[in-house]
Nucleic acid binder design. Structure first.
Lengths: 218, 218
DNA sequence: GCATAATCGACCACTCTGGTCAAGATGCTC
DNA sequence: GAGCATCTTGACCAGAGTGGTCGATTATGC
């Protein structure tokens, strides 16, 4: 990559990355068009191949950029000291949503690469970095959980899976509901309260009986 | 569509549909190639446009074929008399897997159309038929459920959602595990037993206490 | 033998591709 | 201002691929 790119006005860098990531995320490696990228980025065609030398390198850099973004804005901020599994999972989800809200494109690109096998054989090293990121995130999720909070007639592993699946299902449901709606002027408070009520249900179902505290008080 | 197509050797028809569905499912409408289709189907280019007159009609027919397949092999076989929600859900899942195993391509094509908005504005009528199919399937899922089996300290609606999400999560997990493996000579029995054990956990968690019968005996 | 239907694939005009490069703009130093 | 290096552009390239056509050839049924 030409180092001139790094000297660019940051706003312009962002515009270029935006266009690049969006194009690759939407169309995959093979069907992405460098013409559309320069058009959307508002730069001349020559510049794209001046900064990056080929489409292949461009894609490689885009993937690296996305992985770096996730590492920096999400994975590195994860905190695995919280022993309460549900609370921890909520924290993680919040972080992920925050990073996603700030810039959804890296997520979109990585999701596309995961599904579309376009790039798999072309960039096996990055494919591996992706796999590592995903597996390390998940394996750490299970570590140092205080399983003594769980009800004892079900294996802790299964309890954690059930909680995870339930929360993921809940998330997807809310996402789908909100997809088409106008987000301005939305009654967030109602959603948040419903969510905490949902957490209380999970605690009631999967935790030991007794007062383990409502989540609302947080 | 040229009626000559219907007079074709059924095996040849199947080969053509296979190639068509696979291509559209993999690449979406815009990026699908009629050249690749005829090559994979093993017919001359002329024939494709003899049977179907244009790429647009071809896609339309492919979508209709897929919707018909799902209707015939899956939705029409659904039975909503079983009052036990878990049992019903298992039955539904089994039907879906059976149809999917017999021919996954219609599922793949519809999934692609759902995600890729390629075709949305081109074929709004079929888009609507898809939406109807999905919503009718889901709304019927909730009807006539014997909620008296559920524990009473949680709204029945929420119990059903939690069960649904848990089972979907379980499915995805198993699917992911099996994705790369060699399916021949697999120990299915072990999987089935683990699944029934999982169902027992769900019953223990979400149903009223007392002997509601193990699922293993089925 | 003959009409009709089925089948092929070379061919068409066209669009789009990743990539190049001569020409010019811009900024910096003296 | 001149001179030089660095940026920036977009017209242009050869090549690949597009959906679709059609004259030629073969198979079928009577």
């Amino acid at each position: 990559m030409n180092e001139a790119f790094h000297k660019l006005d940051p706003e312009k860098q962002r515009r270029i990355w935006d266009a690049v990531l969006r194009e690759f995320a939407q169309h995959g490696y093979a069907n992405a068009s460098t013409n559309r990228i320069v058009q959307e980025a508002g730069i001349g065609k020559g510049m794209l191949f001046y900064y990056f030398n080929s489409k292949e390198e461009l894609f490689r850099r885009a993937l690296e950029y996305s992985l770096d973004y996730l590492q920096r804005e999400y994975v590195s901020k994860l905190d695995y000291t919280e022993p309460d599994f549900i609370t921890r999972f909520v924290q993680i989800t919040e972080l992920k949503m925050r990073a996603h809200l700030q810039n959804p494109l890296p997520f979109a690109l990585l999701a596309n690469v995961q599904i579309n096998q376009d790039a798999r054989q072309l960039f096996p090293d990055l494919q591996q970095r992706m796999a590592e990121l995903a597996s390390s995130e998940l394996s750490k999720l299970w570590a140092n959980v205080d399983t003594s909070l769980f009800r004892e007639d079900i294996p802790p592993r299964q309890v954690m899976n059930l909680i995870r699946w339930s929360m993921e299902g809940y998330q997807n449901e809310v996402m789908n509901q909100l997809k088409d709606k106008d987000l301005t002027g939305l009654d967030w408070q109602a959603y948040v309260e419903e969510f905490y009520a949902f957490l209380d249900v999970l605690r009631k179902v999967f935790y030991k009986e007794g007062d383990h505290g409502s989540t609302k008080s947080q």
